[in-house]
């Protein structure tokens, strides 16, 4: 087994208007099988992917919001959301889905996966990756 690499998935587009959001989620789920160090970033319109209370019935598309809640099962536990992007869109953390994971190293305590960070913290996160995949 090769060494663990740091993978960052950058999400900058709203869901349903294009295929990017769903494609990203699928790549993350597939990639999770390879035991890498995975981080997800949501900025710009990408923050809309995590907004709760979606109903896609009337547009005839499958609502893939529930799948984000499975990310913890796939050991994807670092989900960074950019503060400036939320604010620019009139959103707060409270508008987003409550994504949790169970910390194996802490007696399976349930913890929040989403962390709101500033643009400059986001820049640092991007700068410390081995692979950056953009969607």
């Amino acid at each position: 087994m090769s060494e663990v690499k740091k993978f960052l998935y950058v999400n900058r587009k709203a869901p349903y208007g294009s295929i990017y959001a769903l494609e990203s989620l699928e790549v993350v789920l597939i990639g999770a099988a390879f035991d890498q160090d995975v981080t997800l970033a949501f900025l710009d319109d990408g923050v809309y992917q995590l907004v709760k209370g979606k109903n896609t019935e009337a547009i005839g598309m499958k609502n893939f919001s529930p799948t984000y809640s499975a990310l913890g099962d796939y050991d994807v536990t670092k989900i960074y959301v950019e503060k400036e992007s939320l604010e620019a869109r009139g959103l707060t953390l409270g508008d987003l889905m409550d994504l949790k994971y169970e910390d194996e190293d802490d007696d399976w305590a349930e913890k929040d996966s989403i962390r709101v960070v500033s643009a400059s913290e986001m820049a640092d996160i991007m700068d410390t990756q081995d692979i950056v995949l953009s969607f």
Partner: peptide, 15 residues
Amino acid sequence: FVDLVTGHDNNQSWL
């Protein structure tokens, strides 16, 4: 373009 890619540690696309 190729030199830029190989001359940096990493690259990131902004779509």
